[in-house]
Structures are given as structure tokens and as C-alpha cells.
């Protein structure tokens, strides 16, 4: 199973990177998830999953036959963290789409290199509202 896990993790990592190199922010965000799943799998594989039974202590169970619980605990932690980060990335994606009105990575991130606008307090920038035509097309919502 080791090489299956290794190859799967590696391929998913490659796919994740490939997705992060995509032109569309949506796929970049999904790429983060795929890459983080790959890493989780990799951590579990690197910690070995030798053993016949899950790590539960029960009367009569041979402790030596149990699988290594530590990588499992680590991966569990990592999965939840990964989820939290994914949600944040998703909300960045959402907000970006709302503000920029587009999902093209390079076009969005190129804004950073534009010269700083003058006369601005360093507080909230203007432009936090949606243009009318970018609003949700579904009409039923406003009922």
C-alpha cells in the first residue's frame, strides 16, 4: 500500500500545483484543497500505516497489531486546519469576485503592482460595493 499512497499523494500534489498555476481563481482555490489533501495523505503515509486494526484499546486486543495512531492524529488536525484555511480562501475568492468582478488570477494580482493611489487615508478603500450588473441574477431571492 505504501507506494500506492506515495504515488497518489505525489500525483495529487502535482495536480494541485498545476491547478494553482491556472488562470482562474476558482481553480487556484480548488488547487489549494487538492494540494492540502495530497499533503495529508503524504503525512499519513510517511508515518506508516502498518498494523491490522485501528488504534482502539479493547480487552483481548494485541497492542502490537494496532496501527500507529500518531500520524492519524496529526492528519486529523491537519485536515481540520486545511478546511478552515480553505473556507477563508473561498471567502477571499468570493470577495475578490465581488470587488474585481473577474476571476482571472493575473489580472487580479496585477492590481497590487499599480502605483498607490494618492490622498487616501489608510483605512477602508472605496469601492466595496457591487455594480448593479454584477448582482446575483436569480430574481427569486429578493422576495
Amino acid at each position: 500500500m505504501e507506494w500506492v499512497a506515495a504515488v497518489t499523494a505525489g500525483s495529487m500534489a502535482g495536480l494541485g500545483i498545476w491547478m494553482m498555476l491556472d488562470q482562474h481563481l476558482i481553480r487556484v482555490v480548488l488547487g489549494i484543497t487538492v494540494f492540502s489533501n495530497a499533503v495529508n495523505l503524504g503525512v499519513l503515509a510517511a508515518g506508516r500505516h502498518v498494523g491490522e486494526a485501528p488504534a482502539f484499546i479493547a480487552p483481548g486486543v494485541d497492542a502490537a497489531a494496532l496501527v500507529n495512531p500518531l500520524p492519524q492524529a496529526l492528519v486529523l488536525t491537519a485536515i481540520v486546519i486545511g478546511f478552515a484555511l480553505f473556507v477563508f480562501a473561498l471567502s477571499i475568492l468570493k470577495r475578490t469576485y465581488e470587488l474585481h468582478g473577474k476571476n482571472d488570477t493575473d489580472q487580479v494580482t496585477a492590481v497590487v503592482e499599480q502605483p498607490a493611489p494618492d490622498g487616501q487615508e489608510n483605512g477602508v478603500e472605496q469601492g466595496g460595493t457591487l455594480d448593479v450588473d454584477e448582482r446575483d441574477p436569480s430574481a427569486g431571492e429578493r422576495e
Partner: peptide, 24 residues
Amino acid sequence: SLGGGQRRLAGAMTYLVLNLLATL
């Protein structure tokens, strides 16, 4: 990303993806 705005959000995006990658 605090304070919002186009520039800040774009910066946050770059920051987010690259730092996430590093942490992973």
C-alpha cells in the same frame, strides 16, 4: 485583508496562496 478594497484583496490573494503553499 482588513479594510478591504481591490488592491488589498489582490495582495491578500498572493499572500494567501504562497504562504499556504509554504505551510503545507
